[in-house]
Simulated scan of single mutants.
Amino acid sequence: MNIQKMMKQMQQMQSKMAQTQDDLAGKTMEVSSGGGRVTVTVTGAQEITGIKINKEIVDPEDVDMLETLVLTAVQQALAKSKEMAAGEMGKLTQGMGLPPGMGF
């Protein structure tokens, strides 16, 4: 096993990972709940960048429903963002023969 070659491969992978993370930060997606009444925008870096709430669901007498819809949309947006990030990072480690748990 050539240590220098392995170190060079690791440096290349680190560079690709950094580029992929930058790319993910630039990607956005929207996720809705309540039939589109609450929409959350999130980046591939799990940063919430916007929340839109349709005026027709704002009811001072039913704040619990609004809170639930917002929470649901945020949770779904973060889950999709994490899924996208895992897929992109997984492409980098695919075929490297890493032990279980060492992939991204």
Score class of each variant (00 low, 15 high):
Gly90Arg: 11
Ile57Trp: 02
Met17Leu: 15
Gly36Leu: 00
Lys8Ile: 00
Gly26Arg: 12
Gly97Ile: 06
Met84Ala: 10
Ala86Gly: 14
Glu83Ile: 09
Ala86Ser: 14
Gln11Pro: 02
Met89Gln: 02
Val38His: 04
Gln46Thr: 11
Met96Arg: 13
Lys27Phe: 04
Met84Thr: 05
Thr20Asn: 08
Glu83Pro: 04
Val31His: 08
Gln9Tyr: 00
Ile53Asn: 06
Thr28Lys: 14
Ile3Ala: 08
Ile3Arg: 00
Thr28Gln: 13
Lys16Ile: 03
Glu61Gly: 10
Leu71Phe: 01
Val38Pro: 03
Pro100Leu: 03
Lys91Phe: 03
Gly50Ile: 02
Gly50Cys: 03
Thr20Ser: 13
Glu83Thr: 11
Met84Trp: 12
Lys52Thr: 12
Gly97Phe: 09
Ile57Val: 14
Thr43Ala: 08
Gly90Met: 07
Gln14Trp: 05
Val38Leu: 11
Gly103Ile: 03
Ile48Lys: 06
Ile53Cys: 05
Gly50Pro: 04
Gly97Ser: 03
Gly97Tyr: 09
Ala85Asp: 07
Lys8Pro: 03
Ile53Met: 05
Asn54Lys: 15
Asn54Gly: 05
Met6Ser: 09
Gly36Gln: 00
Leu66Ala: 06
Gln9Leu: 10
Met29Asn: 04
Ser81Val: 12
Asp62Trp: 01
Ala25Pro: 13
Gln11Asp: 09
Ile48Met: 12
Gln76Cys: 02
Phe104His: 04
Gln94Asp: 13
Pro100Cys: 07
Val31Asp: 06
Gln94Ala: 15
Thr20Phe: 07
Lys8His: 07
Thr39Ser: 10
Asp59Ser: 09
Val31Ala: 04
Asp22Arg: 11
Gln19Gly: 07
Ala79Asn: 14
Leu66Thr: 05
Ile57Tyr: 01
Lys82Arg: 15
Val74Pro: 01
